[in-house]
Design a protein around this nucleic acid. Structure first.
Length: 880
RNA sequence: AGGCGCGUAGCUCAGUUUGGUUAGAGCGCUACCUUGACACGGUAGAGGUCAGCGGUUCGAGUCCGCUCGCGCCUACCA
């Protein structure tokens, strides 16, 4: 074996991260075999939008996906993590439009073609940013399969899906009330409207009847009265019985409209019991209009200004028109009151403009049937949501789903494959249509594009080459796991299930892990305006990718948001340093001839070796279990504790007498070296999915025979695990800690040698402890270890540590009043506890009903407490 | 208006599914220590009526009911 190079004294992640990423990529480990005998494990990336840089939420998702894919790859799965990006229609278009606005121009001035050129330039820049950031985090994606939603292959899938759904009558075109953004000048789906609670107004005004008299209505949107075509009352409302059928004269416009009776729209107990009806600008009123054959008068232009139907108000912006209408009503003496009213107002998700219900001709997708299949997929367990409390939310949304408006009046996206001729024929086709097949006249393609989520919904299949029967589709579909944010459960996850099931009959993934939101240290949402955003790349530069990853994985408790505190990241960087230094220490003492762990004898070890192997076995099992349950926090905690508390604090300290001083004392130096190295190497393997860079670096420096990225992941059941060893070591640790504790409590200078006596040891332990005398001396700082009870001086402090009776001989006069008081307090506490335990044991129903082992445990506890009380009492010179 | 989640040490969180007697971690805090892996370190320590009330049980942080706070999602109440 070539003796590996020494690790540098200073731990500097930047010195090796880039090098290892290149090595992994060059090794081909990121690309799965095809064909392969191995079982597949596939993760599809939630494609980041090409709107900008990655944020910390992406870093979280990348970390978790990479953790799982590395773990599965090491376990021997044919692992594929398919990367890609999303064109993100409206979101990206808004970004570029902002840029154009700064240049004093806009997309209409530029024209469709030039604008799209700008869009592609933007995309190229941000796509590069995104893959660069992913690589900096260590993401082991298969870049040879990288996809973009507007790629030719994926666009083909989108066209095919659209045409198929159209032929199945699941896509249709209709003139309906949709959500309209007057800033983006496009229709939006219901999901793209963000409802915000706003303190608005509620205004009452009177409509004069043609025959005299009036009816008072309330509204939160006074300007819509310009489009009113009825006032509705409840048919059984006595107050208005005589009014039904009468005509109202519009006070600001030259037209009349009727009072109607409608039991569905009107709640007689609400407000005045009379409702103004604006069929073109309110969904309820729209339905009412249909029921009563009312005229639907659109009063808005696309940009939110009032159109010619608004008479004298035409040309005014809707907010100005609101004030003007109120003023005009006041002038005519028709205002009847005003109050503040808290209600939800819809805003455009991308530009925050108030959205209007707007009458418009759009394409819709009928999703009820697909929703039923998507519900079944989750209910049957074909798709598992993690955490499972999301199931209720998922079901609730799908059960109440309405048809989906899929056309957008944007330019950046998949153009709708529908072609129209002047005679009004519509041809829907995957191929471009130049002449109408029905009348032969020239046909033109629909200028609109599809909702970006339409293509996202196809991501699981379009990335694999569907509708073609491709090798990828056969090998990797359906996929195994999706890790994404809960905020796109409806937008994306549900739609992928619906569309993938519809087209393939199979759900697109077996499991969906929904992550929480990354927040700042105080739990605040990160936002540019608050100035508390953290750039993942900055964090990688400052703390190293491994620390960023370990922090995010540790915080990822299921279903909870992640409060990200840089203090925590500092702590995990320190963990990396600890690992680094432990490895450096080891390197100083290794010969380079150490056999691998599996070659070392597995029995006949002294306590330290037997114990650390037992702990390693326990940790190996726990970590595998944690990853299986996607308990990233638990796995990280296990690893942290094993490395720091078990390996560094205890094992390395106990190895020092052998490694540094050559005092073997029943332990063979070559065993110690092999175990110390082998255990660390296995810990590095276990840790590799979370901290790929440092583990690879150290592992290679310790002469590992292969790259960790493709090394087999340690499985439980291969190392000896001995409960007797654990118990003995626990006792050993307790004795050491008790001794140290006394020295501190009494205020002796550190390192003051003490004499320790161990009394009444069972024979096996007596032998073990005498074998460990050197380790005990060193760790507890003893001048002498005495195992003969007869030689214990009377003045020794007696106590029970981990089940072992100890007597600690402190220097003459060291035990002052303060210490006596502390011991007395402890004695009181023990007596109190003993009282409780005894009472429980005296309770017949407890003894009769509690399981045997619980009762036995209580008995043992009582015995221990009573023994401890005796020892303390003896120390204090009192009766127990 | 419905639905979901949360409330555990100064701070941020595990533990609650499957009840078991002594509730854990990290950070912060206190004291001591620059000892040949590591001060991004070591050793020892302080710190908790598990939001509140009631119930079930031999036994409740854990199960049930109610109350109070906080957060989020869905929704066409004029």
């Amino acid at each position: 074996m070539r003796r590996p190079e020494q690790l540098p004294t200073r731990f500097d992640p930047t010195s090796f991260e880039g090098r290892w990423y290149e090595a992994w990529e060059a090794s081909g480990a990121f690309t799965p075999e095809l064909p392969s005998e191995k079982p597949p494990f596939v993760i599809l990336i939630p494609p980041p939008n090409v709107t900008g840089k990655l944020h910390i939420g992406h870093a979280l998702q990348f970390t978790l996906q990479d953790l799982v894919i590395r773990w599965r790859r090491m376990q021997g799965y044919n692992a594929l993590w398919l990367p890609g990006t999303d064109h993100a229609g409206i979101a990206t278009q808004v970004m570029v439009e902002r840029e154009l606005a700064k240049e004093g121009t806009n997309r209409r001035e530029l024209g469709r073609e030039k604008f799209l050129t700008r869009m592609w330039e933007w995309k190229a820049q941000y796509k590069d940013n995104i893959s660069h950031q992913a690589k900096a985090l260590g993401a082991s994606c298969d870049w040879s399969r990288e996809r973009f939603t507007l790629d030719e292959m994926l666009s083909g899938a989108v066209k095919h899906a659209f045409v198929s759904l159209y032929r199945e009558d699941l896509i249709y075109r209709a003139h309906r009330l949709i959500n309209w953004c007057p800033r983006c000048l496009t229709a939006l789906s219901d999901l793209e409207v963000v409802h915000k609670e706003i303190d608005g107004g509620m205004w009452d005004f009177a409509y004069p009847l043609v025959d005299g008299g009036e009816v008072v209505v309330s509204t939160s949107r006074p300007e819509t009265m310009l489009g009113d075509t009825a006032v509705a009352v409840h048919p059984e409302d006595e107050r208005y019985r005589g009014l039904v059928g009468k005509l109202i004269r519009h006070p600001l416009l030259d037209r009349t409209f009727p009072v109607i009776a409608d039991a569905i729209l009107v709640d007689p107990k609400f407000g005045t019991g009379a409702v103004k009806v604006t069929p073109a600008h309110d969904p309820n009123d729209f339905a009412t209009g249909d029921r009563h054959g009312l005229e639907k008068i659109n009063i808005l232009n696309e940009d939110g200004t009032i159109n010619a139907n608004g008479g004298p108000f035409a040309g005014q912006d809707r907010s100005a028109a609101r004030k003007a209408v109120l003023a005009a009503l006041a002038e005519k003496g028709l205002r009847r009151g005003e109050k503040t009213h808290r209600h939800a107002v819809g805003h455009c998700q991308r530009c925050d403009t108030v959205v209007e219900p707007y009458l418009s001709r759009q394409w819709f997708c009928s999703v009820k049937g697909m929703a039923g299949r998507a519900l079944a997929a989750v209910r049957s367990g074909e798709v598992r949501l993690i955490p499972d409390f999301w199931v209720a939310t998922y079901e609730n949304w799908l059960e109440n789903i309405l048809d989906w408006c899929i056309s957008r009046q944007l330019w950046w996206g998949h153009r709708i494959p529908a072609f129209y001729c002047p005679d009004g024929h519509t041809t829907v086709s995957e191929e471009n249509v130049a002449t109408c097949p029905q009348c032969g006249k020239p046909a033109e393609q629909d200028p609109d594009v599809l909702d970006t989520w339409f293509s996202s919904g196809l991501w699981p299949i379009s990335t694999m080459g569907w509708p073609a029967d491709t090798a990828d589709m056969r090998a990797f579909y359906p996929t195994s796991l999706l890790i994404t944010g809960f905020d796109i459960l409806f937008f994306w996850v549900a739609r992928m299930v619906m569309m993938s099931c519809h087209f393939t009959g199979k759900a697109p993934f077996a499991e969906v892990h929904l992550t929480g939101l990354v927040r700042d240290a105080r739990g605040q949402k990160m936002s540019k305006t608050k100035g508390n955003v953290m750039d993942p790349l900055d964090l990688v530069h400052e703390y190293g990718a491994d620390a960023v990853r370990f922090t995010l994985a540790s915080l990822a408790s299921p279903g909870r948001d992640l409060p990200l505190d840089v203090k925590r990241m500092e702590g995990y960087r320190a963990f990396g340093t600890k690992l680094w230094n432990a490895a450096r220490f080891l390197q100083m003492h290794l010969t380079g001839e150490e056999p691998p762990l599996e070659k070392v004898a597995t029995s006949g070890f002294a306590l330290p070796e037997a114990w650390i192997l037992t702990e390693l076995e326990r940790t190996t099992a726990a970590v595998n279990r944690a990853w299986e349950r996607y308990r990233f926090d638990e796995g990280c905690r296990e690893l942290y504790q094993f490395v720091w508390n078990d390996y560094c604090d205890w094992y390395v300290e106990m190895a020092k007498p052998v490694l540094q001083e050559g005092s073997e004392n029943g332990r063979r130096a070559e065993d110690v070296r092999a175990v110390a190295r082998g255990v660390l190497l296995q810990a590095l393997k276990l840790l590799h999915p979370v901290m790929p860079f440092i583990t690879e670096e150290i592992s290679q420096h310790l002469g590992a025979p292969e790259l960790l990225i493709t090394a087999p992941y340690p499985a439980p059941g291969r190392l000896p695990e001995d409960p007797a060893v654990s118990a003995l070591m626990a006792a050993f640790q307790a004795v050491v800690q008790e001794t140290r504790s006394y020295r501190h409590l009494v205020g002796l200078p550190p390192g003051t040698p003490l004499q320790l006596c161990l009394l009444n040891l069972q024979p096996a332990w007596r032998q073990a402890f005498s074998g460990l005398a050197g380790e005990l001396r060193r760790l507890a700082g003893l001048s002498a270890l005495e195992l003969d009870p007869a030689k214990v001086p009377d003045r020794a402090i007696r106590d029970l540590a981990g089940g072992v009776s100890v007597a600690i001989v402190l220097p003459e006069g060291a035990v002052g009043e303060a210490e006596r008081a502390r011991l007395a307090a402890e004695l009181e506490q023990i007596r109190g506890e003993l009282g409780k335990v005894s009472a429980r044991l005296a309770d017949e129903s407890f003894v009769a009903r509690a399981p045997e082992e619980v009762v036995a445990g209580s008995r043992q506890r009582a015995a221990e407490l009573s023994h401890k009380a005796q020892l303390l009492a003896a120390t204090l010179g009192r009766e127990p």
